[in-house]
Design a protein around this nucleic acid. Structure first.
Lengths: 254, 254
DNA sequence: CAGTGGTCTAGACCACCAC
DNA sequence: TGGTGGTCTAGACCACTGC
């Protein structure tokens, strides 16, 4: 026999609203009734409705703005292919933008990107992975990637200066094949990739940049690229709203 | 200049308690002061403390039980290696328990496992991935995996009956090399793996089985194994508390 | 029975937006 | 200015634990 687990009211209300969204009773992009209306509709206090909305907002289904109301998230889930990004697609376009654009096109979205390049002292995780001192200057290439104009991924790539300095890697356009092709030209062809992924709440800065709620979660994917000598020559950390992405890895056995 | 973003009180209190936990002011396994004490300590209402605790409970840092109090999560983060599970380690022990035990041993934990085997109508996702009708009977092998006795992973593996029926795959012990070795013996050597991962709240059942809070998140990893003919011969879905695990993939470029 | 955390209400104040 | 969502309080009731 299944144990009786009566849900608290706010979770029951959350379930009803969640179902209504999946039913398309409230279709993507549409506006939800106000909290006062929902309170009357479900015969509870506004505080209870507010708490219910907090739950499904944390799941990424809705988005609330003070003064403006609550709307249903218009974006579908996107699949990111972890392996293969650095092969086919990339060769045809700059950076990993080829792969990213393909991933978005697969669900009918248009990709955008805005890069920033500079020198910075290596953050702790970068220093550790690159095997250098913590405040050594390194090249940093940052991008905000968008789908239909909405920020959807933050990425920061770090490369040691002794490799990057004075090369096309410090330019806005890294040329045909992107950064990995330039690294290969410089004698650092990548032979191994590693990705480590955790889930956590967004930082304040990330929440702002990605338009996220503090109760939502992000994937933090940290990719390390190594050359034939085993040296880590690039560390790329990506931050993605967890409700928006599915991570895919496909590989041959053995 | 950084924009002023004054946090609401409950997030400030959450930040203080979070810091105290990371400081080891409240070490792993220890008991937090009661909500009333914390309320007095930080000069807010108990409702505000309760909300603050809800935040960090959602992050997996603490665990609350009615009547008993709130304790700091005693388990460290564990790294799961997505690729390589089906090779070295597995050969030395049954199922994927070899890999799982190694992952836990790496952070000083002891692995446990309790399998259940049966026939069930294929769930929708299994039917789709195996390319069969939705209610076809399939073999289901379920496991609850534990670390130091605490449930830490749920896994359900589904295999078509036309392959599994009457073989060692329906036995508790699948023999040396585990299920993939038996599939190879039967002419279905696996040549390709795919893993698709999303993050979501736990179902009620999962929350109960894993001792999780509804505000926490799980990784849902769905792995499909294909033989040389391209046929999907196994679908394995794993559910892991997201705050407890780091997912790792390492592969050779090209 | 006292103490714990979980929930809900009623009411209030605020920041923000659109009109 | 009125309506929106975000937060906080004071108080209450409850389920549960451990003595």
């Amino acid at each position: 026999m299944p144990i009786e687990t009566p849900q608290p009211e706010f979770r029951q209300v959350a379930a009803l609203i969640r179902t209504a969204i999946q039913d398309q009773t409230y279709p993507p992009g549409s506006q939800l009734p106000s909290e006062n209306e929902l309170a009357e509709l479900h015969d509870v206090t506004r505080a209870t409705v507010n708490r219910a909305l907090t739950v499904i907002r944390g799941e990424g289904l809705i988005r609330s703005e003070r003064g403006r109301g609550t709307t249903v998230n218009p974006l579908p889930m996107i699949r990111r292919r972890g392996i293969d990004r650095q092969t086919r697609e990339q060769r045809e376009s700059g950076e990993a933008r080829g792969a990213f654009a393909a991933e978005l096109a697969a669900v009918g979205l248009t990709a955008g990107s805005s890069p920033t390049i500079g020198q910075v002292p290596a953050p702790d995780y970068v220093a550790e992975l690159l095997g250098i001192e913590e405040d050594t200057q390194v090249l940093a290439r940052s991008r905000v990637m968008t789908g239909n104009g909405i920020p959807i991924t933050l990425a920061v790539s770090h490369i040691p200066l002794d490799i990057a300095e004075g090369t096309q890697l410090v330019e806005k356009d890294t040329g045909p094949g992107g950064a990995y092709s330039r690294l290969a030209d410089l004698g650092h062809e990548i032979v191994e990739f590693t990705e480590n992924t955790i889930v956590r709440p967004p930082s304040d800065e990330e929440a702002r940049a990605l338009g996220m709620d503090p109760d939502q979660r992000v994937f933090q994917v940290t990719r390390t690229a190594r050359d034939a000598s085993g040296r880590a020559v690039e560390v790329n950390r990506m931050v993605l709203p967890a409700h928006q992405w599915e991570l895919n890895y496909t590989w041959a056995a053995e």
